[in-house]
């Protein structure tokens, strides 16, 4: 078993706001290895994006405050890292792509300029990115960076890539822009890619293309990926593993087939049941009663307990520990054994 690329252990994060202190991440545990694509799912506000941003060190504090846990990247604790070190990691070791391709490219620079700058920044931390030796001249670096930018655009499937380096973002379609952003994230050959809802803003056919491209890139660069999404369909289609989050906790995680076919946490089951199928009559969608708890004053114990049909006094008293119900399949619920008996319907 290889060492995990990324290991998030018991990560706690609070956000200070006008209304008080919200305990947003409540002990996140996650392990990502190379070649694994982890889907991070959960409803809005459950801390998916914050988890991703935390790995990149992009959560500004204040207002955020980390109080406990660690994020180990290749054995190095990122939370204790100096900004200078994070700068070297971003782009070179950890890449990120975001939700809305229309707002994530700078509108007043050509994509060539933007890609070249990223390539140069990556080359400054790791000269191998540009294929040059340490002492290469500035001009040689620029030329290599531009060549690399063209190659990357080509690789992410932009037709006529080299000529399009001189175009501005508004001259590309949404899907094409997301490809550009993927090229930008991958230009420094990161080991870990965090994709924060990369397909949410795209229409379905483009969505499939982008997911294909992502999978292809993972094979080629041997990356680990965290794919943050709302969409269980995307997870089923793309991911090797999935972690289900609820109100700042990972409630269930494991290999994607296992979790989606035999969900063991009541919340995961509720999520699965909410997906409409062909048999569901019009207007008869299954929902989940109640709403996400207010994190300014979260429930003690299991945060899902107030909405859970199985909730018992034990659920309200303490946060349930992770139980391994199958190899790598972990569930944070005290009713795991009871759930096992009521097979998933």
């Amino acid at each position: 078993m290889s060492n995990p690329l990324l290991k998030i252990r018991n990560l706690h994060l609070s956000m200070h706001s006008f209304d008080g202190k919200a305990h947003v991440l409540n002990g996140i545990n996650l392990e990502v290895k190379r070649n694994e694509i982890w889907g991070l799912v959960g409803e809005t506000g459950c801390g998916k994006s914050l988890t991703g941003l935390s790995v990149s060190g992009l959560v500004s504090s204040p207002p955020a405050e980390y109080h406990g846990g660690e994020i180990l990247f290749d054995g190095e604790d990122l939370l204790g890292c100096h900004e200078q070190r994070l700068l070297a990691l971003r782009g070179n070791k950890i890449g990120m792509i975001f939700q809305d391709p229309t707002t994530n490219l700078n509108p007043v620079f050509t994509i060539g300029t933007q890609l070249v700058d990223v390539a140069l920044a990556a080359g400054a931390s790791d000269p191998q990115v540009l294929g040059l030796t340490v002492g290469a001249s500035g001009r040689a670096r620029r030329r290599a960076a531009r060549a690399l930018a063209g190659d990357m655009l080509d690789k992410v499937g932009i037709p006529n890539a080299r000529a399009r380096l001189d175009d501005y973002p508004h001259q590309f379609s949404g899907g094409m822009r997301q490809r550009v952003l993927i090229a930008m994230a991958l230009i420094g050959r990161p080991d870990l890619l965090i994709a924060d809802e990369p397909t949410t803003a795209l229409d379905v056919s483009v969505q499939a293309q982008i997911l294909d491209l992502l999978r292809q890139m993972v094979d080629e660069f041997r990356m680990g990926v965290i794919l943050i999404t709302h969409n269980l369909g995307v997870v089923a289609q793309t991911c090797s593993h999935v972690a289900v989050m609820y109100a700042g906790n990972v409630v269930e995680s494991g290999p994607v087939r296992r979790v989606l076919e035999q969900p063991a946490h009541p919340y995961t089951r509720a999520l699965m049941r909410a997906i409409p199928t062909r048999d569901v009559k019009r207007g008869a969608l299954f929902g989940l009663a109640g709403s996400v708890p207010n994190l300014l004053s979260p429930p003690t114990g299991c945060r899902f307990a107030p909405r859970c049909a199985l909730a018992s006094p034990a659920c309200h008293s303490a946060l349930p520990a992770d139980r391994e119900v199958a190899p790598d399949h972990k569930v944070a619920c005290v009713h795991v054994s009871a759930m096992k008996e009521t097979s998933y319907a």
Partner: peptide
């Protein structure tokens, strides 16, 4: 944010 995430100073 993107510019920071891809490693620009």
């Amino acid at each position: 944010t993107t510019a920071r995430a891809v490693g620009l100073s």
